[in-house]
């Protein structure tokens, strides 16, 4: 054996070398190649935009780019928080998010309980299938349906007028909380069935023995529902609630773009739609202001998500990440 080979063998058996990048790369080079596309994808389409956030602190213009545009510090944030438009949008965002994770959270759970009380398997399956459909209808179509049904002579408007409510185009109504309720109901209509899947699965995993024992002791079905099923799926309900709160500020506002109009901005404009309008809404564009508004939403959304995730970990020992 030559000295070179011996040296090589010694190097190869060195535990330090086995932990080194060079060794790992030689062994797993195919995996490294597999990581290339995702790294390119993530860096170009997610991490460079994160760097691009600096434009929120500049008077950005396309010609000068990130490095040439004049630096203005927190000017745009001051503009946002002293401007009436953004503050209205912020108030609406908070209110819609709150409504969504309080009133909007329960219909799916109630629906799951109702499903669990059905005996007839075929009926249950049919109800489930029907209730899932709205989740697969495109946002544009849903918005179009809402417009038709709530128009001046729309079916829902006519139904409401039977209860003494004035015949009107409900989407043009800019009194609080008309638009918020419409948006809530639209969300519930879309998600009540699909959102119940998790709960239905959890309910079906509750031990049959418990129900049997309770039934023998004379518990009615409703008693069993509240005393056995509900406590058993409570950790999951808490987890879902906390995660809903975490996501509430940052997601679910895009459909508003399809439903609002200048005359209802005072109740329907949100941080998300404001961000969109400042950049792509036609008229004058202010990219930096839009980026500042978007950054604000991202930061609050992320903080809320981290907070709720750690809360969920404490409360029910489950977490998203």
């Amino acid at each position: 054996m030559s000295t070179a080979d011996a040296a090589k063998a010694e190097r190869l058996s060195d535990p330090k070398y086995k932990k080194s990048w060079a060794f790992d790369f030689k062994k797993n080079w195919a995996l490294y190649i597999m990581f290339v596309p995702v790294l390119v994808y993530e860096i170009v389409l997610h991490y460079i935009p994160m760097f691009g956030i600096i434009m929120a602190f500049e008077d950005y213009n396309v010609i000068d780019g990130y490095f040439g545009s004049p630096w203005v510090g927190f000017k745009h944030f001051i503009d946002l928080f002293t401007g009436e438009q953004f503050m209205t949008a912020l108030r609406n965002t908070v209110c819609i998010a709150l409504i969504k994770c309080t009133i909007g959270f329960f219909p799916s759970i109630i629906f799951a309980f109702l499903l669990s009380l059905l005996h007839h398997k075929g009926f249950k399956r049919t109800v489930q299938t029907f209730s899932y459909l709205p989740n697969f209808v495109a946002a544009v179509v849903v918005a179009s349906l809402v417009m038709q049904f709530l128009a001046k002579d729309g079916p829902l408007t006519l139904l409401l007028s039977k209860f003494g409510l004035e015949n009107q185009n409900w989407l043009a109504n800019n009194k609080i909380p008309v638009f918020w309720i419409i948006y809530l109901l639209m969300g519930v209509w879309q998600s009540v069935g699909w959102g119940s899947i998790m709960y239905v699965a959890a309910i079906s995993q509750v031990s049959g023995d418990l129900h049997e024992a309770a039934a023998i002791d004379g518990a009615t079905r409703l008693q069993r529902l509240f005393k056995i099923t509900l406590p058993n799926i409570m950790p999951m309900i808490i987890m879902m609630l906390v995660l809903n709160v975490g996501l509430s500020f940052s997601t679910g506002f895009d459909s508003i773009l399809l439903l609002y109009m200048p005359s209802t901005y005072n109740v329907a404009d949100t941080v998300y739609t404001y961000t969109y309008r400042m950049a792509f809404g036609g008229g004058t564009t202010n990219y930096s202001l839009s980026a500042a508004s978007g950054l604000f939403q991202s930061v609050v959304g992320t903080a809320l998500l981290i907070l709720s995730n750690s809360l969920s970990r404490k409360l029910s020992s489950t977490s998203l990440f």
């Binding site: 997610h46 460079i48 935009p49 691009g52 961000t275 950049a279 990219y287 991202s298 992320t302």
Partner: peptide, 14 residues
Amino acid sequence: TMLFSGGMVPTYMV
């Protein structure tokens, strides 16, 4: 990337 994103405008610029 699940937690944080650059947002609409910076992504548009890229």
